[in-house]
């Protein structure tokens, strides 16, 4: 089985979709000759033509809004938003239009649309690119939110997203595009939504993460293991649908939990995870659930980015606090 980087896996998934379904088209900024600023669509316009891999004018609301119309017409559009930070300029189309067109039309107008967006920080982008705003979208009923952490999952979850009859926001951790590599089958496969992955088995404390924070949690688990502590790492994979039962069962096994997110603390999706655990695993908890996150401040310039993002040390200390509790 070939080893692929995340960006190679995503590109392979897009290629497979274009190859197998003539209704699929890719629309976005710089997706053609350039192959996307991260090369997710490298070579696809040359292979499938300008009518199927379309360089769009620089206007996010109409990329998303037109993709809605394409989907209603019978196409299967995959729209690329260059950075999730730019999706604010399309937020009304995503939250009010795409997510609830099925509902507003009583099922008459389904919107099978995949919105791909590079997500998160850690790569020294200019301002306003890198905020982890996944919670905004997880709060939009009707929109599924998918957050792969591995190359295998990226391809398999992308295939599931493209096959889904409803809209999916597919967030790609740009820090992991080339750093994350793992075994990816050449043949088609799907990873189901709503089933978390145990990224690493452990016994004493559960670290819950999604997207690039999964690798952070795994490094923290390594550090904890060096100190004799067995930490389990959960990768939620999808925020909507959330694997409510899998989460509760896993945390019940250890009784101790740290939720790791790249976003600012207050109102982040980590709060949803903690609230879910309070509802479903309260009597199994041996210690208060900890959250590790960015501070409640704007994503900063690159020079101070490393002070802003949660670190391995932050996770290790939080895990140790849960273990020190009575």
């Amino acid at each position: 089985m070939p080893v692929m980087t995340m960006i190679q896996a995503i590109r392979a998934g897009l290629d497979e979709a274009l190859e197998t379904d003539p209704r699929v088209m890719i629309v976005g900024e710089d997706v053609g000759a350039l192959g996307g600023v991260f090369r997710a669509t490298d070579g696809l316009q040359a292979k499938y033509g300008e009518a199927r891999v379309v360089d769009m004018p620089l206007a996010e609301a109409s990329i998303v809004g037109a993709a809605l119309g394409l989907a209603v017409s019978g196409m299967r559009p995959i729209a690329e938003i260059q950075f999730l930070g730019f999706a604010h300029q399309a937020f009304h189309q995503i939250g009010q239009q795409v997510a609830r067109m099925r509902f507003r039309s009583q099922g008459h107008c389904a919107v099978p649309l995949v919105l791909r967006a590079a997500f998160g920080g850690g790569v020294r982008t200019p301002e306003l690119h890198s905020d982890a705003f996944e919670a905004f979208y997880a709060h939009c009923p009707g929109l599924k939110v998918v957050m792969p952490a591995t190359a295998y999952d990226a391809k398999g979850l992308l295939a599931t997203a493209i096959a889904d009859p409803d809209p999916v926001l597919f967030c790609e951790p740009l820090r992991g595009y080339r750093l994350v590599k793992d075994d990816v089958p050449d043949e088609p496969y799907r990873v189901p939504f709503g089933q978390l992955r145990i990224a690493r088995a452990g016994r004493e404390v559960t670290l819950v993460a999604w997207s690039a924070a999964v690798q952070l949690a795994e490094r923290a688990a390594d550090a904890l293991a060096a100190g004799g502590i067995s930490a389990e790492v959960l990768d939620l994979r999808t925020l909507n649908p959330l694997d409510v039962d899998g989460l509760a069962a896993a945390v019940a096994r250890t009784g101790r939990c740290v939720v790791v997110q790249e976003a600012p603390l207050s109102g982040g999706f980590g709060a949803e995870v903690v609230a879910t655990l309070v509802e479903t695993a309260f009597y199994h908890l041996q210690a208060p659930v900890e959250r590790v996150s960015a501070p409640d401040t704007p994503y900063p310039l690159a020079g101070v980015e490393d002070f802003y993002l949660p670190s391995v040390d932050d996770v290790v200390h939080a895990a140790r606090r849960t273990l020190a509790a009575a």
Binding site: A61, S62, V64, G65, A66, A67, L68, G69, L70, A71, V72, S73, G74, M75, P77, H92, Q93, Q96, Q97, M101, R104, S105, Q106, G107, H108, C109
Partner: peptide
């Protein structure tokens, strides 16, 4: 809000101008 089958309509739009990109994508598709 139900639109009968075969009636070529999108739902009534309340958010001002949001339907315009939809119409373009629909026509294009």
């Amino acid at each position: 809000g139900a639109i009968p089958d075969g009636v070529n309509l999108l739902p009534i739009q309340i958010s001002i101008a949001a339907q315009l990109p939809h119409a373009v994508g629909l026509a294009w598709g």
